[in-house]
Simulated scan of single mutants.
Amino acid sequence: MRVEVWGDINCPWCYIGKARFDQALAGFEHREDVEVVHRSFELDPHAPRAARPVIPLLAAKYGLSLEQAEAAEGHIAENARGEGLPYLSGGRDAANSFDMHRLLHFAKEQGRQAELLDVLYRANFAEERSAFATARLVELAVEARLDGEAAAAVLADPEAYADAVREDEATASAMGATGVPFFVLDRRLGVSGAQPVETFARALEQAWESQVPLPLIPVGGGDAQACGPDGCALPQQ
C-alpha cells in the first residue's frame, strides 16, 4: 500500500501531522507493507527567497499584533511539543521552499527522502539558524547522508527536479487539495489536516481492507488543523 503525503516545510501542521501519522503507522499491523512518499506543495510559490522573521509575517497575514502573533506561535508550539517535537516559537524565519522541494525529489531518488524531510523540518521549526540558504541546505543534505557535492549541483541548477515539484502540485490540485498536510492512501482515501493519531490509524485499516476506487473518500473531521494559501490554522486560545 502506498501513502502519499503532500506538505510544505513552511507548514507547522505538516510537521505535527507527520508525527501523528508516523505514530499511527508504527502501530499498524501491516506497516512493513506500506510505502510512504512525500509530495511537494508550496503554500506560497511567490514567497521571496530571502528569509524573513515569522512573527511579523504572521502578524501581517492575520491582522494581529506582534504579541498576538507570538501567542499564536506559542499555541502551535504546545501542539508540537505534545507530539514530542521540538519547536522554537520565537526567532524562526520563512522563505520560498521550492529549492527544498527540489532537493527532496533528489533525496527520493537516493532512498533518503524521509531522512531529509525530518532534517528539514527540525532545522526549520527547532533551530534559530535559517534553513533556507543554499549553503545551509547542502549541510542539511549531508546530515541526511546525501552526497554534498551532488546536492549542491542540484541546488545550482534551477531546473533540476523543478518539473517533478510542479507535477506533484498539479496532481494535488487535480485531487482538490487546497491545503496541507494532505494524505492519500492508495489513491482510495484522502485525509486532510493534522488529524489525531486514531484517525490516521482508522484510515490505514480502511485503506488496507478497501477495494473502493476513486473518487477519494474523505476520512476524519473537516476541522483538523492545516495550512493553505491563505495561511495556517491558529489554535484557539
Rank of each mutant, 00 (worst) to 15 (best):
E139H: 13
E139F: 09
L140Q: 05
L140M: 09
L140C: 07
A141I: 08
A141K: 13
A141Y: 07
V142T: 14
V142F: 00
V142A: 14
V142I: 14
V142N: 08
V142G: 13
E143V: 11
E143Y: 10
E143G: 15
E143Q: 15
E143N: 12
A144V: 07
A144N: 06
A144T: 07
A144Q: 08
R145V: 12
L146D: 02
L146F: 02
L146T: 05
L146M: 13
D147N: 14
D147H: 14
G148M: 00
G148A: 11
E149G: 09
A150N: 02
A150G: 01
A150R: 01
A150F: 03
A150E: 01
A151F: 00
A151D: 02
A151M: 00
A151H: 01
A151P: 04
A151L: 00
A153G: 10
A153E: 05
A153T: 09
A153Q: 12
V154K: 02
V154Y: 01
L155A: 03
L155K: 04
A156I: 09
A156H: 02
A156S: 12
A156V: 08
A156C: 06
A156Y: 03
D157P: 09
D157E: 08
D157K: 13
D157F: 02
D157L: 09
P158V: 10
P158Y: 07
P158T: 08
P158Q: 07
P158I: 11
E159R: 09
E159T: 09
E159I: 05
E159C: 02
E159V: 15
A160T: 03
A160H: 02
Y161N: 08
Y161D: 01
Y161I: 04
A162I: 04
D163S: 14
A164F: 01
A164L: 07
V165C: 09
V165H: 01
V165M: 05
V165D: 06
V165R: 04
R166L: 15
E167Q: 12
E167L: 09
E167M: 05
D168A: 10
D168K: 11
E169Y: 03
E169L: 06
E169K: 08
E169G: 07
A170F: 07
A170C: 08
A170K: 14
T171V: 15
T171L: 07
T171S: 12
T171N: 06
T171M: 11
A172W: 02
A172N: 06
A172S: 12
S173Q: 15
S173L: 14
S173P: 00
S173N: 12
A174Y: 07
A174G: 14
M175G: 15
M175D: 15
M175Y: 15
M175H: 15
M175V: 13
G176F: 10
G176T: 09
G176P: 06
G176M: 06
A177N: 04
T178V: 11
T178R: 14
T178C: 08
G179M: 05
G179D: 02
G179F: 02
G179R: 10
V180C: 06
P181Q: 01
F182N: 05
F182W: 12
F182H: 10
F183A: 12
F183E: 04
F183I: 10
F183H: 13
V184Y: 04
V184A: 13
V184R: 10
V184I: 15
V184Q: 07
